[in-house]
């Protein structure tokens, strides 16, 4: 009996130890990846508030399922998969908000800014105007640093499709930049 009590106690120590490890793991994960994840979410939905909600929901789910993440290297793609699922759920809940890309506007809160910021802002609008199926792999490649194979796996597409979309995405943006009005930014300042 006494032995059993002792064991219980050490079990509990073990459990709280595991909890502490889990906590540290979680915090490290949040610290390392919340920036990328937020940006990815932002490019999915173009809304700061929604992006934040998505990231919150994603990390909460990640916390609950943290034990199932065995390979830390896979953490980012794991989180992105969760986030995409959350985003899809959002559309199930509220079909009305279904993205109409054309009208998407990027909040202009940088009325006063450097040349660089003005260019960024202009470019953001161009990125936002890309069709979603082109934009998503591009964001994953540029921000996430994923390879074509990784992206294909995450988006459940074949690699050739992904590469074609990446090509078209860059091609469109390059065209847009090349035809960029010289006057750009002046109306802003």
């Amino acid at each position: 009996m006494i032995k059993k009590l002792f064991r219980n106690k050490s079990d509990r120590d073990q459990v709280s130890n595991n909890m502490a490890t889990k906590q540290i793991r979680y915090e490290a994960l949040v610290k390392a990846l919340h920036t990328d994840l937020y940006r990815y979410a932002y490019w999915l939905c173009h809304d700061k508030q929604v992006a934040e909600d998505l990231v919150q929901e994603t990390f909460l789910r990640a916390w609950r399922a943290l034990d199932s993440l065995k390979d830390e290297k896979a953490a980012k793609s794991w989180l992105i998969t969760i986030l995409r699922r959350e985003n899809a759920r959002r559309f199930e809940r509220k079909r009305l908000d279904m993205a109409d890309y054309e009208e998407v506007t990027i909040a202009d809160n940088q009325a006063v800014g450097s040349e660089q910021e003005i260019e960024n802002h202009w470019l953001r609008e161009k990125i936002a105007q890309l069709p979603e199926e082109y934009r998503e792999p591009l964001v994953l490649q540029v921000i996430g640093g994923f390879s074509g194979d990784d992206i294909a796996k995450m988006l459940d597409l074949n690699k050739n499709t992904v590469m074609t979309r990446l090509f078209r995405a860059r091609n469109q943006l390059k065209d847009a930049l090349d035809n960029e009005p010289i006057q750009r930014g002046q109306y802003n300042g």
């Binding site: 919340h34 919150q56 960024n120 964001v139």
Partner: peptide, 21 residues
Amino acid sequence: LAQAMKVPVPDDLYDKLILRQ
């Protein structure tokens, strides 16, 4: 592109995430 895609992240996001958890 990378520059443009790096939209500013809310300062308190990290704290919020830890708090929720």
